[in-house]
Amino acid sequence: MIRANNISKSFGDTRILKNISCTFEEGKTNLIIGQSGSGKTVLMKCLVGLLNIDEGEIDFDNRVFSKMSNKEKKNICKELGMLFQGGALFDYMTVEKNVMFPLSMFTKQSYSEKLDRVNFCLKRVNLENTNNLMPSELSGGMTKRVAIARAISMNPQYLFCDEPTSGLDPLTAGLIDDLISEITNEYQTTTIVNTHDMNSVMNIGDKVAFIYKGELWWEGTKDEIMKTDNIELNDFIFSTELTRRLKK
């Protein structure tokens, strides 16, 4: 379980996150939704420690991030996997090298052990036999899947995904959502997913937090979300013609 306790973050004079308190549960896909620019990515980067928060506390299973020594922080890093919005694959390495990278960096495994693990992870995301492709040769969906494979290569306890389905067609997006949710159930990870995609919310939203202009505006499950009378949330959900018609 990851807990954010009253965290705030500003860039210069603009406050991006305003006193957000939220918990993300183990074995569930916890969604953070909100309009583009509402602060989802900033919130996620604060959670994983890429950005320093101005106020508040973040704890990983009762280990408070801000009170940790650098060494402990580094150990937490090894327990978390992150999928970035654009995939963030290392573009001078093959798919295999990308997925193997954390293993080479942090384990003492032999090459064949590492290769087994890489092949296992690639198989898990349905990308067998792509080992020698370069990132520039991959489609959008494949890039995301390789990035997932890399994120899970170290068997993380915490999985972070920043807009895993953005830029993908609905079918591929669905596959990625399913993958994330399966991995979460299989390994009981604490999974946090940023998205503005209502399909994802309906597919995998075990728990949903709605961020509005940097504030936590609403929390609930995917079933509750359809019945809410929160105005801003309703505006967000029913922003497309399709969803409006469905509501009628």
Binding site: K74, N75, C77, M82, G86, A88, L89, D91, F160
Partner: peptide, 17 residues
């Protein structure tokens, strides 16, 4: 710079590198 804007540097850091 390209690694920075494509979040590859962030990726390294979240891995603890």
């Amino acid at each position: 710079g390209t690694m920075r804007v494509t979040e590859q540097i962030d990726a390294l850091q979240t891995m603890g590198v």
